[in-house]
């Protein structure tokens, strides 16, 4: 079984992002970029399935700018076998990303698609669900455990009130949550090896998908920044303030 794993280039999670001066977008100039942490978990899971003899080949797919090659190389260093970049200079909406990915699925016929549950830049959490919808496949979102039995896959999902386990027919789309696994660090030899693994680039226009945006961003603003208050000297003072000054207890 082939696994398709989707990866996205995003700002490093440790960097605080600021809005640009004309309020048109955030300012990503000179910001450190990284592989979206949830995508990293997806790649790790795919590699574990290959190591367990369940997957035969792992294809990493990124849809984004040409610099996304860096993140694809990271996926290859973790253990993906080959990579495909669908290049677009403008940021594409999740619906369009999902439509492009569906075209790749037609070509590659994977048995399983793994993605992150959300990307930490736009915080959308849409692409996996949309891809499952377009392909007509089953979906398992927010997975913290997965178990493949023949042509079925059991997914344990992190839901609001705890954990839910469902069984999906394969092929399936699964989006990965934080506690599915702890991604390995790519070793230096594997980073070197990744440089020689195949990475194919295609233009988004080649796929016959309408790339026109449906959403217009009218402005981007900085939220109200909370100011720090006072450092108190005792628990008694805290209780007093919460009672009398704020009236919250």
């Amino acid at each position: 079984m082939k696994i398709l794993v989707m990866v996205k280039r995003v700002s490093d999670p440790n960097v605080t992002i600021r809005v640009n001066a004309d309020n048109s977008d955030v300012d990503l100039n000179n910001v450190k970029m990284a592989l979206n942490p949830f995508c990293e978990i997806a790649v790790e899971e795919a590699v574990r399935l290959k190591e367990a003899g369940i997957a035969s080949e792992i294809i990493a797919l990124s849809i984004g700018s040409s610099q996304s090659q860096e993140q694809l190389r990271t996926a290859l260093a973790i253990g993906a076998d080959r990579a495909l970049l669908i290049e677009s200079d403008t940021a594409l909406e999740p619906l369009i990303v999902a439509k492009l990915a569906a075209k790749v699925i037609e070509e590659e016929q994977p048995g399983l698609v793994l993605l992150g549950k959300q990307s930490i830049d736009t915080d959308n959490s849409q692409t996996g669900q949309m891809l499952a919808s377009i392909t007509g496949w089953s979906q398992g979102t927010f997975a913290s455990k997965l178990e493949i039995n023949g042509d079925k896959i059991n997914i344990t999902r992190e839901v609001d009130s705890g954990l839910q386990t469902i069984c999906l027919n394969m092929p399936a789309v699964v989006t990965c949550d934080l506690r599915l696994n702890e991604p390995r660090y790519a070793s230096l030899p594997n980073i070197m090896k990744a440089k020689r693994k195949p990475l194919v680039t295609k233009a988004a226009e080649e796929y016959g998908v309408d790339l026109a945006p449906r959403i217009r961003t009218l402005k981007v603003e900085t939220p109200n920044i909370r100011q720090g208050g006072e450092i108190l000297s005792s628990v008694a003072e805290l209780v007093e303030k919460l009672k009398t000054e704020k009236g919250v207890i």
Partner: peptide, 13 residues
């Protein structure tokens, strides 16, 4: 967006 560091006003067609 970005863990609450930006607020976008967005319009759908």
């Amino acid at each position: 967006l970005y863990a609450g560091n930006a607020i976008a006003t967005v319009q759908s067609s």
